[in-house]
Nucleic acid binder design. Structure first.
Lengths: 251, 251
DNA sequence: GCCAGATTAAATGTCAGACAATAAAATGTA
DNA sequence: TACATTTTATTGTCTGACATTTAATCTGGC
């Protein structure tokens, strides 16, 4: 592991990269202890604060964990699904909010991915996941629910559907797509009528999953996607109308 | 933005979280300049190195960028698809290598996701993407290609298929799944016969995509998944046999 | 010999102050 | 005005120190 002190790149970034590469290459294995900060500083011929900045970079990616005290130090972290999952949700959320991704594009991606695991869910769903779906449907039918709570319940429902596929890798990959949509969904105001419609579609999905009827799950997801996009468009349209009216008044 | 100096959590972690939350909440917008390190140190009542550690954490997640010199400082970064993409590949790769994810589970996830965007690809593929697919197929047919180069070409081929869907969000989400598989695929040794088979299937896929024949793309991907898993199993089996023989000899 | 408590040592966490490097802005000059 | 120079604000890095935490070790009494 070596770095170039003359490079324009930060030393701490170079050191972080060197260690990260060593982890990816398998030279450092899970739970192995890194040399102490002082030793690393000597090795790379930099000061301790510089080494610390590098270690913090790695800690931010959950690649290492640190422990204080004697026999403490930095250890290669076993990257857990939950950690990776949390990071992915954050990244996906920011990606959507910062890049002018249209609702349609995000929605298309989300439902395409969800439909990918629908057949597996129909095949493998557990009673537990079915119960979650039913519970969320019930919640969504409650009057007086805020739009935000409705969206949150929607996410939980879809998470259950995704987890039903019983494939951790799939769940992880889809987590970002489903959860990152929530802020966008929160922009929609749901009328009693539209909630009713969504609950009906959710019920159809839950029924089909319970009956292990994959084609119906798929078809209903297509309907749900179409309806969601319809709702979003009407929201955009009514906003434009309001803006136009305002324009008219001031003119 | 406040922190708790008595908390057991690192101050730098707390500061990073406070700033990260501000970005996610939209209190800090893209390209906005953060206060200087000294000002942040004053604000949080900590030293500059502590602030710097916090900023490095955020930099590791591509949430901020820094610039030296007068009117320099830390700026909220517009998270680009390429940055997010690179991070996701790293995370996914480590996740698979550290968590004893079976080849079958990873493979199932990958092909489920890929099939999710196959219909869109068949509909929207550009001449450019078709050309990439053809070029990679040609490369895969070349004798003397190392197994690693074959796998790399395989990844490029599938990336082209995914990108064909013309949905950046979808491409981003699938990047991890496809690329993270590469190290696992590299464990397979491809015989001339199996390469021939794969090239044939790839050709079928390219043909079907060109003909905008979504069902055939889907069917061929299913075949390819089955064949890939068959190959992986035979590799595992032959290894077990070798191990058993060795056992027998020493016994 | 064994256990409880005190001590020690090693490591990370934090601080203070300094200097170097950089790049933009302000200033001076032809 | 155009260009060179100086100033200044900011990040990058270093040194050295102290605080805090925790495991290992030592010590004394039973």
């Amino acid at each position: 592991m070596k770095i170039d002190p003359d490079s324009a790149v930060d030393l701490s970034a170079q050191i972080a990269k060197a260690i990260r590469d060593a982890i990816i290459a398998g030279d450092l294995i899970v739970d192995q202890r890194l040399p102490s900060e002082s030793e690393l500083a000597d090795h790379f011929d930099v000061s301790r604060p510089t080494v610390r900045e590098a270690l913090k970079r790695l800690a931010a990616q959950s690649l290492i964990r640190t422990q204080r005290g004697a026999s403490g130090g930095a250890f290669v972290n076993r990257l857990r699904f939950e950690d990776a999952y949390a990071q992915q949700v954050t990244t996906s959320t920011l990606l959507l909010s910062m890049n002018a991704v249209s609702f349609d594009v995000a929605c298309e991606a989300r439902y395409a991915l969800e439909r990918a695991c629908a057949p597996l869910s129909a095949q493998r769903r557990t009673p537990d996941q079915l119960a979650t779906m039913r519970a969320e449907i019930h919640r969504q039918g409650q009057p007086g629910l805020t739009d935000e709570a409705f969206c949150a319940s929607d996410v939980t429902f879809h998470r259950a559907l995704v987890d039903g596929a019983g494939n951790k890798v799939l769940s992880y990959q889809l987590a970002g797509a489903v959860e990152a949509m929530q802020p966008l969904m929160n922009m929609i105001t749901f009328t009693a009528r539209s909630r009713e419609e969504i609950v009906a579609l959710h019920t159809d999905i839950a029924d089909a999953v319970e009956a292990q009827d994959a084609p119906t799950v798929d078809a209903t997801l297509i309907k749900l996607e179409a309806y969601t996009r319809l709702l979003a468009h009407s929201v955009v349209k009514s906003r434009e109308n309001r803006a136009a009216e305002k324009e008219h008044k001031t003119a």
